[in-house]
Amino acid sequence: MATFQLELVSPEKLLLSRQVEMVVIPAAEGEMGVLPGHAPMIVALRGGVIRVVEGGRDAERLFVAGGFAEVTPDRVTVLADEATPVAELSKAEAERRIAEAEAGYNAATMDTPERRDAAMAKLLAMRAMLASAEAA
């Protein structure tokens, strides 16, 4: 089967760089499957799980808290705000971060719309982290 290069980069390090058959990314508009030859685009990511498909099955699952993905016909580059293998997620840590994000959102109620939106995006990402940790 045809493949393309997938690179996943977080602020700390390059987490993944290899040829894959397909990747499913949590785009802001919804789940987005990418195969070789995909039309070029840049998409915003929401908090969710990136699924790497090899041999017709999920070979790897990584939680991202947001970021961007650049898609070309022969490459996908994900620039994640934060990325963690799903197997390493902690339910307790996710619950702690949800509490922090809720406090941040409540504090932003009288702030600018942009800051409220950013606080809500963080809260939703942390809730997605908890859901991913519970499903793992």
Rank of each mutant, 00 (worst) to 15 (best):
I25N: 07
R116C: 03
D81M: 00
P113R: 05
M41I: 03
R18W: 01
A103C: 01
A136N: 14
A2C: 02
R18Q: 15
K91L: 08
E54H: 02
T112S: 15
A2I: 01
A135F: 09
R96A: 14
M120L: 15
G66S: 10
T109N: 05
V20M: 12
V53A: 12
A2W: 01
P36V: 00
A92E: 13
T112A: 12
E134W: 05
A131G: 15
A108R: 07
P85K: 09
T77F: 01
P73C: 02
R61D: 05
G48K: 03
G33S: 13
E88F: 03
A107R: 15
M110R: 07
R115V: 12
R61N: 08
G30Q: 07
M110T: 13
V71F: 02
L6F: 09
R46V: 05
A108T: 00
R61S: 15
E60T: 09
R61L: 10
A107P: 03
A94R: 13
D81V: 00
M129P: 04
L62Q: 02
R96W: 06
S90Q: 10
E70D: 13
R61K: 15
E82K: 01
E70T: 14
T112Q: 04
K122E: 12
E114P: 02
T3M: 11
K13T: 15
